[in-house]
Every structure is written in structure tokens, then in C-alpha cells.
């Protein structure tokens, strides 16, 4: 009751603190006399491109049909070859009967194209997605090896995890690209994904190990007592339960992976961060670009955590 009565006070305090923070920032930015140019930013998401449509060979315009906004131009060459071009009606540059040479512009097409930031976002998403899947596989294998009764497997997995967790990701990416990439002649995407997967895999392995150890021994014993072999016991009994337990930390790891993927920009993979840096250095719209880039990372990580939250609720039915 007490909290409900005073709820408005704390809400108000929250709003006041946020406004004060924003106001301070606003004041500080005004002091450095920064020229805001938000109007220039949307074209780095999507922009309308004028693509010239050109005649494929020397020819004569035999017919033009206009339908709504687009026009179709029919061309015929001296040898009887025919071609049809589609352009925007208002940017039609030829008349019927006109003679065109090879590569002459017949008109323009206006098309929406994705800008650098969206392309970068896509690269970030697919690199993170591929790395996540590979990291999950590596983590699963390494995590199971950590729990193996075989000394060699246990030792290998332990060494892998220690080495990866004891060195910075930035250095690992450099080694993957400049050392391993050079020696085995790998392209930068493979090196970037490889470094990210190995890095996240070490953490996933520890999460999976902890998840399996959190399942009571009686579960595996019950499965084994029914005659199921160790693989079936893992697959049908232990791992499904462990997965439910480790979903939150696993999701946290994959969200970290999305953010860590910004480091692959240093080996010139044009991900969201690299795209942002390229645009910022050519437009000097530094503030707007980095705010936009941060917002885009925030949107995908938030979407992912919402998805995991939804899955957690779905899994809870058997509790």
C-alpha cells in the first residue's frame, strides 16, 4: 500500500532525472556549437537512386507505351533485333522514331535502395547469426568434453576455455586475421566469424557445463536405469532440461556476441560500426551517425531479449 501511495513520486523523480540528464547533454552540445544535420541521416538507411536506363545496341524507338508512372520503350535495330526498356514516365528522354546509339540513355528509373547503415546492419546480423550457431556447436562440444571422464578431452576443452577467456577478443581477431588468415589464406569474413565463434564458444561451453551440472543426478540415473544409453540420456533427458535453465545466460551471451561483433570492423568487414565510421569520416555528422548506430544495435539486442523472454514463458508450462 505504502508503495502505491507514493508511486507517483518515484515516477516523477525518474522523469526529472532523465530530463535533467538530457538537458545537461543539450546544454553541453550547444556549447561546442555543433551543427546538427539530422535531415542528412535517413538516406544512409534508404535512398532513392536515379538509375539511367540505356539502349543495349544501336536502334530506333519503334513505340512508347505509357502506363501510369512507368513507360515502356520498344527498340528495334537495323538487323531486326528487338528490346523493351522500362523507365519512369516523367523521366522519359526519348521520342518515338528517335534513333539511339548503343549506351544512349533512354530514361531514368527511380528505385529505393538500402543505404550504408542498413547494409552494415545486415552484415552485423548475419555475422552474429552465423557466429552464434557455430559458437553454440563449439560450446556444446567443449562443454561436454569438460564433463567427460576422458582426461585428454577434459584437458583440451579446459585449455581452450582458459586461453580464450584469458586473452582480449581484439587480439584474437588480429591473430585470426593476420596470422591464421595469412597462413591458411582465409578471407576476412571467415577470420572474423571464426574469431567471434571461438570467443563466444568458450563462454557458451562454461554455461552449458554449469547447466548440465545443475540437473540432479537422479535424472540421468533414472534414464540409465530404463536402459537408455548415455547419448540418449543426454539428448532426451539432461540437455532439454539444462537448456531451459541456461536460456537466460545463453541469451545474454548471444546479445554480447552481437555487440562484440562490432570489433570485426577493425579487419575491414563493413558491418554496422564500420559503416558508421565510414559515413562519419566523410560527412562529419559524427554525433548523428553514432547515435543512430547505437540505436540500431539497441533495437536488435532488445528484439532478441524480448524473443528470449517469450521463449522462457513458453518453457515454463512444465514447472
Amino acid at each position: 500500500m505504502k508503495y502505491q501511495q507514493h508511486g507517483w513520486f518515484w515516477r516523477l523523480l525518474l522523469v526529472v532525472i532523465l530530463l535533467a540528464g538530457a538537458g545537461q547533454m543539450w546544454y553541453a552540445v550547444n556549447n561546442v556549437e555543433y551543427q546538427w544535420g539530422w535531415q542528412n541521416i535517413p538516406r544512409y538507411f534508404f535512398y532513392k537512386a536515379d538509375t539511367p536506363v540505356k539502349a543495349p545496341f544501336d536502334s530506333t524507338v519503334t513505340a512508347i507505351t505509357v502506363e501510369g508512372d512507368s513507360a515502356t520503350v520498344l527498340l528495334t535495330s537495323e538487323s531486326g533485333e528487338k528490346a523493351s526498356l522500362t523507365v519512369d514516365a516523367k523521366d522519359l528522354r526519348v521520342k518515338a522514331g528517335e534513333e539511339l546509339f548503343d549506351d544512349d540513355t533512354a530514361g531514368y528509373l527511380h528505385q529505393w535502395k538500402t543505404g550504408q547503415l542498413m547494409k552494415g546492419l545486415w552484415v552485423t546480423i548475419w555475422i552474429s547469426a552465423v557466429s552464434s550457431v557455430v559458437a553454440l556447436i563449439i560450446g556444446m562440444v567443449a562443454g561436454l568434453c569438460r564433463l567427460s571422464s576422458n582426461f585428454t578431452l577434459r584437458g583440451l576443452a579446459g585449455l581452450y576455455i582458459e586461453v580464450i577467456r584469458g586473452t582480449p577478443l581484439l587480439v584474437q581477431i588480429y591473430i585470426a586475421y593476420f596470422l591464421i588468415g595469412t597462413v591458411y589464406n582465409l578471407n576476412r569474413e571467415v577470420c572474423g566469424i571464426g574469431a567471434l565463434s571461438l570467443f563466444a564458444g568458450a563462454y557458451v561451453a562454461e554455461i552449458i557445463r554449469a547447466g548440465i551440472q545443475a540437473i540432479p543426478k537422479g535424472q540421468a540415473e533414472a534414464a540409465r536405469s530404463l536402459g537408455m544409453n548415455s547419448f540418449q540420456t543426454m539428448k532426451d533427458v539432461v540437455l532439454p532440461q539444462a537448456f531451459k535453465k541456461i536460456l537466460p545466460p545463453l541469451a545474454g551471451q548471444f546479445i554480447s556476441l552481437i555487440k562484440d561483433s562490432s570489433l570485426v570492423s577493425i579487419i575491414s568487414i563493413i558491418d554496422l560500426t564500420k559503416a558508421g565510421r565510414d559515413i562519419a569520416s566523410s560527412t562529419f555528422a559524427t554525433f548523428e551517425i553514432w547515435i543512430s548506430v547505437a540505436a540500431m544495435y539497441f533495437v536488435i539486442t532488445t528484439l532478441l531479449s524480448q524473443l528470449v523472454y517469450y521463449m522462457e514463458r513458453r518453457f515454463r508450462i512444465s514447472d
Binding site: 540432479p216 537422479g218 535424472q219 540415473e221 533414472a222 534414464a223 536405469s225 530404463l226 536402459g227 533427458v237 532439454p240 532440461q241 531451459k244 512444465s318 514447472d319
Partner: peptide, 14 residues
Amino acid sequence: EVGMVFQQFNLFPH
């Protein structure tokens, strides 16, 4: 061929 019943039941909760 040998069934076993445990003190803690050990049913598969999932």
C-alpha cells in the same frame, strides 16, 4: 530388464 524406482521419484519434469 531391471526396473528401478527411486526415493526421489526422478520423473522427467520436462
